[in-house]
Design a protein around this nucleic acid. Structure first.
Length: 655
DNA sequence: GCGGAGACCCTTTTT
DNA sequence: GGGTCTCCGC
C-alpha cells in the first residue's frame, strides 16, 4: 500500500513538473544521462528547466538536497534559482549547494580550511595594493598603470596560474617581464595579509581539494548531481574546479548558449562547450530552440543579426507567437534629444494607463545613463538603476568596512592606510612615511610600527600626540566591541570616530547618513546561531564582496536602467537600446574581429530581452568627455533586415 | 598638516 | 566631464 501511494505521488509530481513543457524541455528535466549538455537559446525557458530538474530530482527521484550542486555566475541568477526552488520545496532547501562559482568556492574553503582568516579583496583593494607595490619597486606609475597590471594579473589568474607558472608570449619584452614581477610581489603581499582576490578564491579552492584528498573524496561522493548555468561564460580555472569535483559517478548537466557569451574579457571561453563534449564523449545534447519570450519580428531580427558571427554553434530559434510590432528606430539630434524622446514615449505610455515596469533602457556603458536620469527626474518618472555604483563602494560605507576589517586584523595594511587619517586627525604624510620606514626596517606591519614609534618616542610633539590618539582609539574600539553584536559594533565605531561629523557640512549629508543606517539594518539581519561574533564579522565582510547586490530591488513601479551586460537573464515588455552608434556600440576599443563577435553577441542579448517592443536609438551628435562627436549609426542596425524595421520620423511631444 | 586651485589623464562590460 | 594628482599658500 505504502508503495502504491508513493507511486501515485510520483505520478502526481511528475505531471506537475512537466506541465506546460515542450518535449525537449521534459527530456532535459528528466533525463538520466550521466552527462548532459543543454543548448538553450535566449528565452527558451532555460531557468525553468534547471529549477524543475532540481525539483524532479528531489521529489521524483528522492535525491537528497545536499547531493545537488547548482552553480551560476551571478548572484542575481543564483538568488532567482534559490527563490524558485524555495517556492516548490519548503524544507531542507538550504542543504542544496546553490550559488556562484566564487560563493561556493569560498564556502568550500571556509568549511574545510584550518585557516579561516582570509579576507576577500575586491578590484579597488587590488588596485590600491598594486599601486603601492609599483611605487615600492620604483616603477613609473604612468608607465605601469595599476589598472593595467591588475588586468594582466587577473588574466593569468583566470587561467589558474601563478607568476612562476606563466610563460608570457612576449617574455623577451621588458614591459611584460616587469608586469610578471609585479604579479609575483603582489601575490607575496596577498599571502602575507591572507588576502584572497576573486581569482584566488577559485585557485585556492581547487588547490585545496588537490592537497586534501579526504575532503575531495567527501565532495566527490556528496555531489551526485552537478548543474551549471550559463556554461558559455566559464573560464579555465572554473572548468578546472568543476572537473576536480566531478568524478566518474556523478551526473552533470551544463546549460549554455554560445550566442550569449559576453564575458570573454573576464577569461570566459564558450569553446569550453566543445571541450565538455570532447572530455565527456558520452554527453547527450539537447537543444531548446523554441522561444517563449519575444514576438516574431524581434526574434527573427535577432536571428539575422547573430547569423553574422562565424564562430558559433548553428541554431535557429523559432516562436509560435505572432510577428507583433516592427522594431522602431529613432535617429536623435543629440543625446539630449535621445533622452527626451525616450522619456516622452514612456510618459505617453503611462498617460494611457501603462506601467513603468514595462520598460528597460539598455546601454553599453554606465555614463550613458546620466542625461537620461536628469530628464527622468525632471519629469517625475520613477526609475531604478541596476548595478550602478555598488552600495558597498560608497565611501562612507567603505570606511566603516575598513574599520571593521582593521579591527579584525591589525596587520591589514590596506585598511590601516585607509583609516589612519580618516576622519582627519592630523596624521599627515610625514608621519605615515615614518611608519612605513619603521615597518620596512623591522619587517613588521604598519600598526606594529606605530606601537614601536610610540613606545620609543621616535616622533615628538604634535605628531606623537596625534598618532597616540589613533592608537588609543583603536585599542578602545577593540576592547569594547568584543562582546557586541555586529550591528552594535558598527554603531559603536560610528560614534567613536564621529563619522557623521565628517559629512555634516556636505550637501549630500542626508544620503550618506541614510546609507549608513541601511548598512546597520543589513547587519542586523546578518545573524547565525551558535557562531561567535568575530566569525560573523568575518562572514559579513566576505559576504559584502561576494554578494554585492544585497540591496533588494524596490518594488515600486519604475523604469529600469542598466548596462547591456547586466540585462542578461532578464526580460521586459518594452526595451530601448540607446547609443546604437559606431564607437559606442560596438565600442571603439573593439576593432579586432573576435571581440567584435562578442559585441554582436551583446547586441543579441539586448535585443532578445524584449518581449513585445524594441526601440533602437542613435544620435547624430553626442557630447562625450568634454567634446562633441558625430557618430555614424551602428553596424548592428544595418545587420537587421529592413523588413523588420520602422523609422520614427516625427513624434508628438508632450513633455 | 590641510585644503583649494588647477593640471592632467582617461575614457567597457563584472565575480 | 569628472576623477585623481600636484603644487602652493595658509
Amino acid at each position: 500500500m505504502k508503495y502504491f501511494y508513493k507511486f501515485l505521488l510520483s505520478v502526481f509530481m511528475y505531471s506537475k513538473i512537466i506541465k506546460n513543457m515542450n518535449e525537449n524541455q521534459i527530456e532535459a528535466i528528466t533525463s538520466n544521462n550521466k552527462n548532459l549538455l543543454i543548448l538553450a537559446g535566449a528565452g527558451s525557458g532555460k531557468t525553468r528547466v534547471l529549477v524543475n530538474r532540481i525539483f524532479w530530482l528531489i521529489k521524483n527521484q528522492n535525491i537528497s538536497p545536499k547531493s545537488i550542486l547548482a552553480v551560476t555566475f551571478t548572484n542575481k541568477s543564483s538568488k532567482e534559482i534559490y527563490n524558485r526552488i524555495n517556492k516548490l520545496i519548503k524544507f531542507n532547501i538550504n542543504d542544496i549547494w546553490v550559488g556562484t562559482f566564487h560563493g561556493l568556492a569560498y564556502k568550500m574553503l571556509y568549511l574545510n580550511s584550518n585557516n579561516k582568516n582570509f579576507q576577500i579583496i575586491d578590484k579597488n583593494d587590488q588596485i590600491y595594493l598594486i599601486k603601492s607595490i609599483t611605487k615600492k619597486l620604483n616603477l613609473d606609475i604612468k608607465k605601469y598603470p595599476p589598472i593595467k597590471s591588475m588586468y594582466y594579473i587577473n588574466k593569468i589568474k583566470n587561467l589558474g596560474l601563478y607568476s612562476k607558472d606563466y610563460v608570457d608570449m612576449n617574455c623577451s619584452n621588458e614591459f611584460n617581464n616587469k608586469l610578471l614581477y609585479i604579479y609575483k610581489i603582489y601575490q607575496k603581499e596577498c599571502y602575507k595579509h591572507c588576502f584572497l582576490d576573486f581569482g584566488e578564491i577559485l585557485i585556492s579552492a581547487n588547490d585545496f581539494l588537490f592537497k586534501n584528498p579526504v575532503v575531495l573524496k567527501k565532495y566527490n561522493m556528496q555531489f551526485k548531481y552537478i548543474l551549471i548555468d550559463e556554461f558559455q561564460d566559464i573560464n579555465n580555472i572554473q572548468y578546472k574546479w568543476i572537473s576536480t569535483i566531478k568524478n566518474k559517478n556523478n551526473k552533470i548537466m551544463v546549460v549554455g548558449d554560445d550566442d550569449q557569451s559576453i564575458y570573454g574579457w573576464r577569461g570566459a571561453k564558450s569553446e569550453f562547450i566543445q571541450k565538455f563534449i570532447f572530455d565527456y564523449p558520452d554527453t547527450k545534447i539537447i537543444r531548446l530552440e523554441q522561444n517563449y519570450r519575444s514576438t516574431g519580428n524581434i526574434l527573427f531580427a535577432a536571428n539575422e543579426l547573430i547569423n553574422n558571427n562565424n564562430n558559433r554553434i548553428k541554431k535557429k530559434l523559432w516562436t509560435q507567437k505572432k510577428n507583433g510590432e516592427l522594431i522602431s528606430i529613432y535617429s536623435a539630434k543629440n543625446e539630449i534629444d535621445e533622452a527626451v524622446f525616450i522619456v516622452n514615449y514612456i510618459k505617453i505610455w503611462k498617460y494611457n494607463g501603462g506601467l513603468l515596469n514595462d520598460f528597460a533602457v539598455l546601454y553599453r556603458k554606465n555614463i550613458q545613463s546620466n542625461i537620461l536620469e536628469k530628464i527622468l527626474l525632471r519629469n517625475n518618472i520613477n526609475y531604478e538603476i541596476l548595478n550602478s555604483i555598488n552600495f558597498f563602494n560608497r565611501i562612507e560605507i567603505k570606511l566603516i568596512i575598513f574599520y571593521l576589517r582593521f579591527i579584525l586584523n591589525n596587520n591589514d595594511n590596506i585598511s590601516f592606510l585607509k583609516i589612519i587619517n580618516t576622519p582627519k586627525r592630523g596624521i599627515g604624510i610625514n608621519t605615515i612615511n615614518k611608519i612605513n620606514e619603521i615597518s620596512k626596517k623591522y619587517k613588521i606591519s604598519l600598526f606594529k610600527a606605530v606601537y614601536k614609534i610610540l613606545k620609543y618616542k621616535i616622533l615628538k610633539n604634535r605628531q606623537f600626540l596625534n598618532l597616540n590618539g589613533f592608537f588609543i582609539l583603536i585599542n578602545e574600539i577593540k576592547k569594547k566591541i568584543i562582546n557586541l553584536k555586529l550591528y552594535e559594533q558598527i554603531n559603536y565605531i560610528i560614534q567613536k570616530i564621529d563619522l557623521f561629523l565628517m559629512y555634516k557640512k556636505k550637501e549630500d549629508f542626508k544620503i550618506r547618513i541614510n546609507n549608513v543606517y541601511e548598512l546597520i539594518e543589513l547587519s542586523k539581519k546578518f545573524y547565525f546561531e551558535n557562531i561567535k561574533e568575530t566569525e560573523i564579522l568575518k562572514l559579513f565582510l566576505s559576504n559584502i564582496i561576494l554578494n554585492n547586490d544585497n540591496i533588494d530591488i524596490k518594488k515600486i513601479d519604475s523604469v529600469k536602467l542598466m548596462t547591456l551586460h547586466s540585462s542578461k537573464g532578464l526580460e521586459f515588455n518594452q526595451v530601448f537600446i540607446i547609443g546604437m552608434e559606431e564607437g559606442i556600440f560596438p565600442n571603439k576599443f573593439i576593432i579586432n574581429s573576435k571581440s567584435l563577435e562578442e559585441e554582436r553577441r551583446l547586441a543579441y542579448v539586448g535585443i532578445t530581452r524584449a518581449k513585445k517592443k524594441l526601440i533602437l536609438t542613435y544620435t547624430k551628435s553626442r557630447y562625450l568627455h568634454g567634446k562633441n562627436i558625430f557618430p555614424i549609426p551602428s553596424r548592428f542596425i544595418k545587420e537587421i533586415p529592413k523588413k523588420f524595421i520602422k523609422k520614427i520620423e516625427n513624434y508628438k511631444i508632450i513633455l
